[in-house]
């Protein structure tokens, strides 16, 4: 590919002085013979949003669950700031500053917002008992920033609306000084106004130097919010590109056909015809 079509840019690597915040290198995992993720590599720099795109079953959620500790990889390395780390369960990931907001929100429906905010990291009094009042006070503060209209602190989160539940989930992720935030379809259950709120929030988090993986079906969301995007298909990476180097149609082509446009750096999952012809 020595010549390029008019209107397309060269794939560009962003010049970086520091190692990536997160590098997932050559990750593979199989479930009963089916390779859900097949030698996939992605990386993420501080203050950057990387969108992960792909069909259902493309492996993006599985790849990200390996990072958040829900699954254990069969093969490959995870590096944080250039150093190899071992993530075998969600506790490891949290200890490394990796927080996840799951598509299913992963809230305990039967307890209230404060209990969910602090789930797994409860504040305790000096006698070792739960300090519910302090947790509620803190929860009121955090939620006041994210969703000032939120009042239903005493109710189980089951009773809350989709947007309210989402803000509880986000509050939980950012409250504990996350360095890396994984958002799995963060706007899937939200109305337009709430989606805009999440967008604002993401910009705010970027400014604080947090790296964000954004998993989404919605190309528009990714173009709006992400700096780069990586497309997966059948468990493999089709390609990675800056959102300014590719357009909507090319990304659709990557998702549907696995065709890597000239503006993107191809991965092992890219359709081989073009390079074979060349």
């Amino acid at each position: 590919m020595t010549t390029h079509t008019h209107g397309h840019k060269h794939p560009t690597e962003v010049p970086r002085s520091s190692p990536p915040l997160i590098e997932m290198r050559d990750i593979s995992i199989a479930f009963g013979g089916i390779k859900a993720v097949d030698h996939a590599s992605v990386n993420l720099y501080p203050g950057e949003v990387v969108g992960l795109l792909g069909h259902n079953g493309a492996g993006k959620s599985t790849l990200i669950k390996i990072l958040s500790g829900a699954y254990k990889r069969d093969h490959g390395d995870i590096l944080i700031n250039g150093a190899k780390v071992d993530i075998t369960n969600p506790r490891d990931a949290k200890a490394l500053g990796i927080e996840t907001i799951y598509q299913t929100l992963a809230l305990a429906d039967n307890v209230d917002a404060a209990a969910n905010l602090y789930l797994g990291r409860e504040l305790r009094t000096r006698w070792g008992t739960l300090d519910d009042v302090a947790m509620e006070a803190e929860c009121r503060q955090v939620m006041g920033r994210l969703n000032p209209n939120f009042r239903r602190f005493k109710e189980p989160v089951k009773a809350l609306s989709g947007g309210q539940r989402q803000s509880v989930a986000i509050a939980r992720a950012i409250h504990f000084n996350a360095r890396i935030l994984i958002m799995d379809e963060p706007t899937a259950a939200l109305g337009p106004q709430e989606t805009a709120q999440v967008g604002e929030l993401i910009k705010q988090l970027k400014a604080e130097g947090i790296g964000i993986f954004l998993i989404s079906h919605d190309i528009h969301d990714v173009f709006d919010l992400a700096d780069r995007l990586t497309v997966m298909k059948n468990g493999r990476v089709v390609g990675t590109a800056r959102t300014t180097d590719v357009d909507h149609d090319e990304v659709l082509g990557m998702i549907i056909a696995g065709k890597c446009p000239p503006g993107a750096i191809p991965g092992p999952g890219a359709l081989q015809t073009a390079s074979a012809a060349a």
């Binding site: 969600p90 506790r91 949290k94 996840t100 809230l107 307890v111 209990a115 789930l119 409860e122």
Partner: peptide, 27 residues
């Protein structure tokens, strides 16, 4: 007291409410 005021009790209820969420929260 155990059910309402301790981590253990809180986890029991959280696991009952959503076992997957509890596991993902590092419990």
């Amino acid at each position: 007291f155990v059910a309402n005021r301790t981590r253990f009790g809180r986890y029991v209820y959280a696991i009952g409410g959503n076992p997957e969420a509890a596991e993902l929260a590092g419990i």
